[in-house]
Simulated scan of single mutants.
Amino acid sequence: MYRFKGFDSAECGDSMSALEAIVNAWMEGEHPRIRHVCQSMRGEHILLTFVYEDTKQLEQRVSSHAQTGVTGGYQRFFDEDLSDDRPTSPRIPATPPPMH
């Protein structure tokens, strides 16, 4: 799920180092997977906005799938092909067709 986060330099007295510290603390604490960032001006203030994926939420999904034994949806199809007694799958040729 995508989320939105905004930072306004007015919140830190327009200090660039304070704004950096706030943004860095958020990044270190949340570990967001940033998909889009935008910097714009609001009067004399800098606005930084981020669209991101919450990696903690992604990790929880992966961990819950691992605990329930759910793997990638395609894995069972590949397993079935491998356990097939036929020497090759009719859908995928063993050798590529000749180049003309």
Rank of each mutant, 00 (worst) to 15 (best):
T71V: 06
S63F: 04
D14Q: 01
D79Y: 06
G73W: 13
M1T: 00
D54F: 01
M99W: 04
E59G: 05
I22A: 15
H65A: 08
V62R: 10
R76H: 15
L82P: 02
S89E: 08
F7Q: 03
K56S: 13
D81V: 14
A66F: 05
V37P: 00
T95S: 11
Q39N: 13
Y74P: 00
N24R: 05
P96K: 11
E28I: 02
F50L: 13
E44V: 07
P98A: 02
V70Q: 13
L82T: 12
V51I: 14
A10W: 03
E30W: 00
Q60R: 08
E80P: 01
R76T: 13
D84N: 15
R61N: 11
F7D: 05
R33I: 12
G6E: 15
E20F: 12
I92W: 08
L58W: 08
E44A: 14
P98G: 01
S15W: 07
V62S: 09
Q60N: 05
V70E: 15
C12W: 02
K56Q: 13
G69D: 00
D54M: 02
A21F: 08
G43K: 07
M1V: 02
T88Q: 15
L19D: 03
F4G: 03
V51T: 11
F50A: 06
R42M: 01
G69L: 02
H45N: 04
E59I: 04
S9L: 05
P96L: 09
I46V: 14
E28A: 07
V62L: 12
E28D: 04
S83T: 10
G29W: 02
P90L: 15
H100D: 06
P98N: 02
T71F: 11
G72C: 01
L58N: 11
S15C: 09
S89G: 09
K56L: 11
M99I: 07
G13K: 04
P97H: 05
K5D: 05
T71M: 09
D8P: 01
P98Q: 01
W26N: 04
H45Q: 04
Q75M: 10
R91S: 15
V37T: 10
Q75Y: 07
A94W: 11
T71I: 06
G6L: 05
D84V: 05
R42G: 00
R86M: 14
T49L: 02
Y52W: 06
S64D: 08
K56R: 11
A94P: 12
D85I: 03
Q57P: 05
E20H: 10
W26E: 03
G29A: 09
E11Q: 15
S83E: 15
F4R: 09
T55I: 05
T95L: 11
D14T: 00
D84T: 12
Q57R: 12
A10R: 08
Q67C: 01
M41C: 08
I46H: 06
L48A: 01
P32L: 07
D81K: 14
F78M: 14
R61T: 12
D84A: 15
C12N: 00
P87K: 14
E59K: 05
R76V: 15
E11I: 10
S63P: 04
R61G: 08
A18V: 03
E44M: 14
T95P: 04
E53S: 06
A10I: 01
W26P: 00
G29Y: 02
R61H: 04
R35C: 13
V23I: 09
P93Y: 07
G6R: 03
C38L: 09
S17R: 13
L82S: 10
A94L: 14
